[in-house]
Design a protein around this nucleic acid. Structure first.
Lengths: 334, 334
DNA sequence: CTGAAAGCGCTTACAG
DNA sequence: CTGAAAGCGCTTACAG
């Protein structure tokens, strides 16, 4: 039998109220008694039962995370890194992370997950929603706990958001390509709708505009974010159009695209200059190593967790947007 | 205010006992009453409070997962895929997954994590322990819930284990290299001690022995599993020894090794034949695409979850080991 | 400065 | 076939 607060109280010769207060540091207890309580806890290897604690205090010390990662997607580092950053930070503050993948990319699934989390009395929710508009949160979450949006900033609900500066990153990539003399610069990007893709597209357009290059919609390819689409995407782009450079706006598409490029022995950067998105180790092992826009994925997780902890302490109104800078990592592909 | 079982009972005009029983399907209730209860639950959007449920039933419907993934390790797909497989399967059975990374690779950290999980009343634990001997579990877990070991099979505690057939995979890789005419086959592998590395080493030795090739310890390099070590590992191997082929026994080392190989423009397979471990998308974008031993990582997660669910239902004694087959994926690097 | 006691929302013997 | 009630292990007003 595991021992509870009652056993500790008996062992220390005090009331359970006192034990509770020394555990939570929630009112003055004399040093002498404190010592006794700690000793008793030590001796009995006491661990507070968090179900009881949650039930009573309506707090679970647990925060939910919902990310859209398909099981087929053996390449999506981004959310995995974010999750790690979150978990690491939460752990240091005594919080647990409940993980859920939305594997279907259905909005109903997302809602169902949140309902499940609700019955676990989560203290907060991190979500990379697949929806553009999350007003459904008004009914499901009802401001019972803070919501922090990661990577994407959907409309319709009040919550902080933590994202990378996708516009700036895309802008820098395209500007770099332009500086190298390219004018026919293709874009391969994920499906529009979520802010992430929208912003990168915008950055691309803005860079072209700022440098007086007309925007040619026929050399931008919008594709589902998976390896296959990356492969087919460059293939189509190269078959039909005379581009000399390509900016690929996410890491999964980049990987698929590189497969096609390496298969056809297309010379980089001689025949085609490329800049990819996200800086993971594998971008260094292609031939040549890829120039990429780095997003601080782990740091996004850390930041999101910090924001969440603050919100839990101080649920003041008003939401804020946190932008983490991207960086151009120059290698040999352009 | 969220509504509880009491409100549902009132609304349906029955006792809370009856409501509880229809929720849990735990004793006969007439169809008529059942209908009323369901209606009431629907109407009030009732979600059982799982803290209360856990406190009362000593079950949390939550299972913990501890994996050793370093924050610096932007390459470790394996456990991420396993985690996904676990979470997907658990979700379908109404279980939640509590995630924890052991980011320090300290055994004390591992123990601390488990203690934290204990106070959350987890119903089970998945662990890829960094320890060879986990007898400490006897004190911490005390058979309070089943433990399923993933990827590694440490000694000292009774639990099922789910792993890939590392010995067979390594054997097949080396055999393939031998069949291609190689006799000086190097090995780059992760640190010994955990069963995973041990077995792959064994497979390597066995394949050599079975084909009458003397085992030369000077061409095996044991290294920490990270990108840097992979890079330095091949570098050392190639500088000092005349190997014509190389088997790299895990994916992180493979990535680092490929970096060195591509940097030095070493021709594969002409100058060096290589077979890597783990089949992730990025193994297709190197030049040439890599021949690898595929481990079914997602499936290991699914299997582990299934075993866990069975154990929870039926905590019979005796543990079993489940081996999932590996497969040689032939591409162009050998 | 510390304790006795109510109550969080459920499940589950016990009655009838 | 269904209900009244005890109790899981805590936290936190309320007293003194």
């Amino acid at each position: 039998m595991r021992s509870g607060i009652k056993q500790v109280a008996e062992h220390a010769g005090v009331s359970i109220a006192t034990v509770s207060h020394v555990i939570n540091n929630t009112r003055y207890v004399s040093d002498e008694i404190k010592r006794k309580v700690y000793e008793a806890m030590e001796e009995l290897d006491y661990r507070p039962n968090s179900a009881a604690r949650s039930l009573r205090s309506q707090k679970s010390n647990t925060i939910g995370l919902i990310v859209p990662v398909l099981p087929s997607d053996t390449s999506n580092f981004f959310f995995m890194m974010v999750a790690q950053g979150i978990q690491f930070t939460l752990k240091q503050h005594g919080y647990h992370l409940l993980l859920s993948n939305n594997t279907t990319e259905q909005i109903e699934d997302e809602q169902e997950q949140i309902k499940l989390f609700n019955s676990k009395l989560i203290d907060g929710l991190f979500i990379a929603s697949i929806a553009e508009d999350v007003s459904y949160l008004n009914e499901i979450v009802r401001s019972n706990y803070p919501v922090v949006f990661i990577d994407r900033k959907p409309a319709g609900y009040n919550g902080d958001s933590v994202l990378a500066d996708g516009l700036g990153g895309a802008y820098e990539a395209v500007k770099t390509l332009i500086a190298k003399g390219h004018r026919r610069i293709g874009l391969l990007t994920g499906e529009l709708g979520i802010t992430t893709s929208n912003e990168r597209y915008e950055g691309y357009q803005k860079a072209l505009a700022d440098h007086g290059i007309p925007w040619d919609p026929s050399i931008v390819k919008v594709a589902e974010s998976n390896f296959e689409s990356g492969y087919e995407g460059v293939k189509a782009l190269l078959a039909e159009h005379d581009i000399t450079a390509l900016f690929i706006a996410n890491n999964v598409l980049t990987m698929g695209a590189m497969r096609y490029i390496q298969e056809r022995r297309i010379q980089i950067p001689a025949e085609l200059a490329v800049i990819g998105f996200d800086d993971y180790d594998w971008t260094q092992i292609t031939s040549p190593p890829l120039t990429v826009i780095r997003q601080p994925s782990y740091e996004i997780g850390v930041k999101a967790a910090e924001i969440m902890l603050k919100r839990i302490e101080n649920p003041s109104a008003g939401s804020k947007e946190y932008r983490l800078p991207t960086a151009l990592i120059m290698r040999d592909s352009c």
